[in-house]
Design a protein around this nucleic acid. Structure first.
Lengths: 237, 237
DNA sequence: CGTAGCAACGAACGCTGTTCGTCACCACTT
DNA sequence: AAGTGGTGACGAACAGCGTTCGTTGCTACG
């Protein structure tokens, strides 16, 4: 449970004046951090206004003094999480590998908070930290000699790809959180594919092994490699 | 409104016996078709069990005799929509362009039902029609000489990409459905980017034009081109 | 000392997916 | 022909959701 954090959610608060406030010191940052904790441990479905409020020992209505919307709260959570993604110092000689490493770093954080992609996918990045990451990706590509228009579009497409891959992972994570077993689930899928009619699905039935091959990271790496290879072909010729 | 279809949702029903059934002839297929209609016209948020039932002139509990879950209902809707995607006869000489055309065809249908991607993204394709499409993509690639393992993974990644792109589109579609103006929205984003600090975001601020350039299709085409170029590099060298 | 402003909050609204228990009808058996 | 079992249709309800309203009580300032 997260009650260990709920008990004293108040660090040694620096009081603005003397005299202990009888009212609970709610704040925007505290709310966002609480929502982030719930997102990490219970997924997006666990993050409700009531749940966040409960964790802070209050009611849902109290949150609306600090946050206009649930959407706004979630956007703030996303950017806070984006702050955990490390930046890279551009090295022109290694720009392709650096770009991949940047994508991996983003994926690593994004899969830690498995459902953050459900919020970020499809939303235009406007938060401080998200912009810093886009800025970093642009710097790496420009150092590598990628044309401006290509670099600009690639930032968009690579962000979409990382989001989408994490989203896919979050769907499975949700299933497994509900008690499903991973091996059993994919075993069922495999057996279902194997049992299809070879006349109507000749390629699928003959490629079951290949279709099921590879862990999450391996498939992510494959897609990433596709995109960077394609990008490189815009630079060299 | 959809009431035009709601009034006589019953085609000249072929009765199993004589004597008109006083009970309403609910059926699985009718329920799925109704949900599909609502999905197209009102988006995923409009598809609730109550809403579907209302359209059929009954209560939500009646649906559970034909469908085990809302999730199952939505999966059935997805596969029904997938049935609208045309298949291509593999031509080894044009495999790259064919693969792109197949992706475009899927995207075309997926953006018609703008929120279908919100259901399909991250779910393993098991429906009849979805499998037929995967089968078709595999056939095109194998005809082009793509190695089996690469082809198998590419089907996965390209499906993810089409889903993700449509998902992004559905997020914007939802905003505009709520009354937002497209030009005004992107204009605000542009001005926000332009107003950023050039010291902290030198690349973003100098690439605002490039970042905002291009319609949806153009960006989709760019990402598709990236992936197919990368794929081709696995075949030729 | 009085008061303006605002954070905190209890209650409520309308919505969601789903379940339970009941009713009415059809098809079949006796 | 009378009876009966099975099942689809359905009304009501439950627990949860995001959000809003109106009120309370405290803090900081005049």
């Amino acid at each position: 449970m997260t009650s260990a954090q709920a008990e004293p959610p108040t660090p040694p608060w620096r009081r603005p004046r003397k005299g202990a406030p009888a009212r609970r010191p709610l704040s925007r940052d505290l709310i966002v951090r609480t929502a982030q904790d719930i997102l990490r441990t219970e997924g997006l479905d666990g993050v409700s206004m009531r749940r966040v409020a409960q964790e802070l020992g209050t009611g849902p209505a109290s949150l609306y003094a600090h946050v206009s919307d649930k959407d706004e709260l979630l956007e703030l959570v996303v950017d806070r999480i984006a702050g955990e993604i490390p930046l890279l110092e551009p090295d022109p000689a290694r720009w392709q590998e650096q770009l991949k490493e940047a994508a991996r770093a983003a994926r690593r954080v994004w899969t830690t908070y498995s459902d953050v992609s459900r919020i970020s996918l499809g939303s235009v990045p406007t938060g401080e930290n998200q912009l810093r990451i886009a800025e970093n990706h642009l710097a790496i590509m420009r150092a590598g000699g990628v044309p401006d228009q290509v670099a600009a579009w690639f930032v968009d497409r690579m962000g979409l790809y990382v989001d989408a891959d994490a989203f896919e992972g979050s769907v499975f994570a949700a299933r497994f959180r509900e008690g499903w077993d991973a091996g059993e689930y994919f075993g069922q899928i495999r057996r279902y594919y194997e049992g299809l009619s070879p006349e109507r699905f000749p390629h699928i039935t003959s490629l079951v092994g290949e279709l099921m091959e590879g862990e999450d990271e391996e498939r992510f790496e494959f897609g990433l490699d596709l995109m960077v290879r394609g990008l490189a072909s815009y630079v060299n010729g």
